[in-house]
Amino acid sequence: MNTASNASAVRAAVPANNTFFGKLRALALHALNLHLQNCAVIAEAHRRPE
């Protein structure tokens, strides 16, 4: 699963919104993307043998 492309697809599907809630939503999506990337790194580290 490529989380970076998923998050960018979500952002591309919704028009830009300059209101406070639009900016908050963009920030939340960015935070979610970073979180999912971090989870992928941790999962990869656990998948590899010692």
Rank of each mutant, 00 (worst) to 15 (best):
V41C: 00
H46T: 09
E50W: 01
A12L: 13
V14L: 09
F21K: 13
L36N: 10
T3L: 05
P15G: 15
A26S: 15
I42P: 01
V41W: 01
L32V: 06
R48I: 03
R48C: 03
L36M: 13
A43G: 03
A45D: 05
G22Q: 09
H30L: 12
L34G: 02
L29Y: 02
A4C: 10
N18G: 14
L32C: 08
P15A: 14
F20H: 11
N18E: 14
S5C: 03
L32P: 00
A9G: 15
N38Y: 06
H46L: 11
A45P: 00
V14A: 05
P15R: 07
T3S: 02
E44F: 13
G22V: 08
I42M: 10
L34K: 04
E44T: 11
R11Y: 04
M1P: 01
A16E: 13
R11E: 12
L27E: 07
Q37F: 00
H46R: 12
S5E: 08
L29F: 03
H30K: 12
A43C: 04
A40V: 06
L24W: 12
L27S: 13
T19V: 06
N38P: 00
T19N: 12
A40L: 07
R48N: 11
A13V: 04
A26E: 12
N38Q: 08
S5G: 01
C39Q: 15
V41Y: 03
N33R: 15
S5L: 05
A9N: 14
Q37C: 02
A31T: 02
A12W: 06
L32W: 04
L32Y: 12
L34Y: 02
L29V: 07
A43E: 07
K23L: 15
C39S: 14
A26Q: 14
M1K: 02
R11N: 06
M1D: 00
